[in-house]
Structures are given as C-alpha cells and as structure tokens.
Design a binder for these strands. Structure first.
Lengths: 187, 187
DNA sequence: CTCTAATTGGTCAATCTTGACTATTCAATA
DNA sequence: TATTGAATAGTCAAGATTGACCAATTAGAG
C-alpha cells in the first residue's frame, strides 16, 4: 500500500550515512552533531548547519531516528535524537552500499587549467606559484592534523586518504609549474 | 549609484569561468555548450543542462555575454551567445583568481570509511574489494581517454591531474584492502 | 559589577539545482 | 513508407541549500 502522504524520498548519500553513523554510537542533539562535524569533519564532508537540521527533521519523518525534548539548565530546549531499529538497519545497508561504491572524483580548480593559456605567461606563472604555495601549506597542515594525538583509527582513515590525494595533487602541480618555469608551455 | 533593480550577484565559481571560457574562443548556442560539456568535460566539472541554461541567462543579464537569435533550418530558434568586452575582462580576472586559488578537496566516499567497523569483517572486505575493482577500472578508463588522439593540450591538463589523483586513491585503497585481507583491522 | 565576545540552539526566506517534461526534426530500419 | 530511436533546443516546478538572522546564556576582561 502506497503512503497516503508520501514523503520526498531520502537522498541516498553520504550525509544521511554520516548522521545515522554519528547517532549509532550515542544519542546526540542537533547542535552537538553540527559542532562535531565542523570541528572534526570539516575536511571530510561539506555539510552545513542548516542542511543538517533539515536532514534530521527528514530522517525523523522517515522514522529512522526518534527524538525527545530535553531541557538543559535555562537554555533553549534541545531535541535529542537516537537511532530507531529501522534507522539502524538502514544505516548498515547504506554503509555497505557506499563502502562498495567508488564515487567519481570531480576536482575543483580544473577549469582554470583548461583556459590558462589565455593569461600572459608572467601572470600565469605567478598564479600557478601562488597555488603551489597554498597547496604546500595545506599538505603540511594535513600532516600536522594527522599527528595530533587521540585521533581514533576510524577518523584517521579518511584523513590519510585525503592526505594521499592532496600529496598527489601537489606532485602534479609541481610538475606543471616546473614546465611553466622552463617555458615549455605555449604562450 | 546603486542599481535600482539589483540582480543577484553572480557566483564566483568555476561554472562561470567555464561558460565564459567556452565563449571566448567562439560564439556558441546553449545546446552546443551543453553538448560539449557532457561529451568532453564530464569528468572535469559537474554542470547540468538546466543549470547551464539558467547561468547563461544570468550572464546575459549581467551583460557579460550577449545573444542573438538564429534560425537554423526548420529547427527551434537558438540563442547564439558571444562574450562582451566586460565579459572578456571578467573572464581574465576570474581566470587569474581561480588559477591562483587552490580549492579544498572534499573526497566523496570518505564517510563510509569512518564507520566501516560497524560491518561484519566479511561484508566489509567484500565491499572494499568491490570498490577496489571499480577504482581499477576507472583508472584504466582514464588512461585510455588520455591516449585518445586529438586531445588538445589544454584539455589534457585537467585529465592528467585527475588521473594522478585517481591513481593515488587507488594506491591508498590497495593499502587499506591489504590490511583488511591480512586481518590487521579491529573487528 | 558591567560590558563584550563567544557559545548555544536553532529557523527561514531567497536562491540554486535538477529530474522530468515538451516538442520538433532527422536518420535508419523494416 | 510507416515506425522507431536519437538528436536538437530548451523549460519548469518541486525540492535542496545556505547566508543571514534571532535570542538567550555564559565566560572573561577591565
């Protein structure tokens, strides 16, 4: 029997997996979730506060999570969420599916590489060198973050992966800037 | 003097750069642009047809591009766009800015890595192996695409970059699957 | 004790995105 | 010579996203 009031389907994506996963370990309220994401997972996923709140509502409508209001001192009431049984099952299914599926990478910053010949050689070289400096700084930062003590293995995995790819990007960029410096690229 | 009718600002992003860049070489109509993007640039940028049409409208409202209607046989009238002078200037500015700026990479597929311990070891290993197979196939595909004759240098650049990062991803994944196979990961 | 800044906890209107749809034309096949 | 399928050329409404905003509380400086 079809639902009389049919909810828009849930997106089958990483953000759902993330919220369910965070709730599978323990109950949390919205603010807590957002705080964790912005502090620990900023480099792993891009999920804005407002999107997260809206998605939590949606997950609750789909009965994958349930909430109860909680008063904490004189603060505004919080909604504390927990995973339902259906939510736990969905979490495991989605996890298996997304672990098995390699997403296509779309690299930001590629379009400028296509058109860079439109810039005068001097400007192009300066821009590329600035980009290189930024990327070197980013790699250094990521290395430092990984060495931070107390990072659990599960969090380390995506960050190690990111570092591997960022290093590869750096290597690629060094090669290209080298070509530019040696003037091997058309005007 | 502020605009009486203020247009929403243009996004300062790669899609604008792409459209301006494509029009900087020659006049094109919307369908042609979308066709080119979906055929040649599917792996470089994610820009849907409807978004592109809407963005072309917007660019025209901002007077960065101009259009004239063109009849072609008995086909529906097309709008043929060309870059204005302002558009050309904006293109060069944006190009310089985006070439100099290294965007943060956000890797899809990382969230499942965080929670993978929630899966039974056998399922986890199978999923990871399937992912590995997909990634190997993708690398092979990208290598083939790069060897296709007639690919101009400018198009080769983003694709070489993508291949470098995809290979790094493959290496990382091989390492992790190796650990899983040797049972080096917690239950 | 007062003032400021940061944190807590969240909502909302305006904008952006996209799957689905329209409608015609051309090419090839049966 | 119907008929089917692909290419041409876009449009639109429904849903997704987010920057900006609100309002209270607590911490810390002076």
């Amino acid at each position: 029997m079809a639902d009389l009031i049919s909810l828009p389907a849930l997106p089958d994506d990483e953000r759902v997996l993330l919220l369910l996963g965070l709730l599978s370990a323990q109950e949390r309220h919205g603010y807590e979730i957002n705080d964790f994401i912005s502090r620990q997972l900023g480099c792993v996923i891009d999920l804005k506060k407002a999107t997260a709140y809206q998605l939590l509502d949606r997950l609750e409508q789909h009965a994958l999570i349930a909430s109860h209001p909680a008063q904490h001192g004189a603060r505004p009431t919080r909604k504390v969420y927990r995973l339902t049984e259906a939510g736990h099952a969905h979490f495991l299914e989605l996890l298996k599916a997304r672990l098995a599926h390699e997403e296509v990478l779309i690299l930001p910053g590629s379009v400028s590489l296509i058109f860079c010949e439109h810039l005068p050689a001097a400007e192009r070289l300066m821009a590329a060198q600035e980009r290189l400096a930024q990327l070197e700084a980013r790699v250094a930062m990521q290395e430092r973050l990984l060495e931070l003590p107390g990072l659990p293995q599960s969090m380390k995995r995506p960050k190690t992966r990111l570092l591997a790819l960022t290093r590869a990007d750096l290597e690629w960029l060094r090669g290209w800037v080298g070509e530019l410096e040696r003037g091997e690229v058309a005007p």
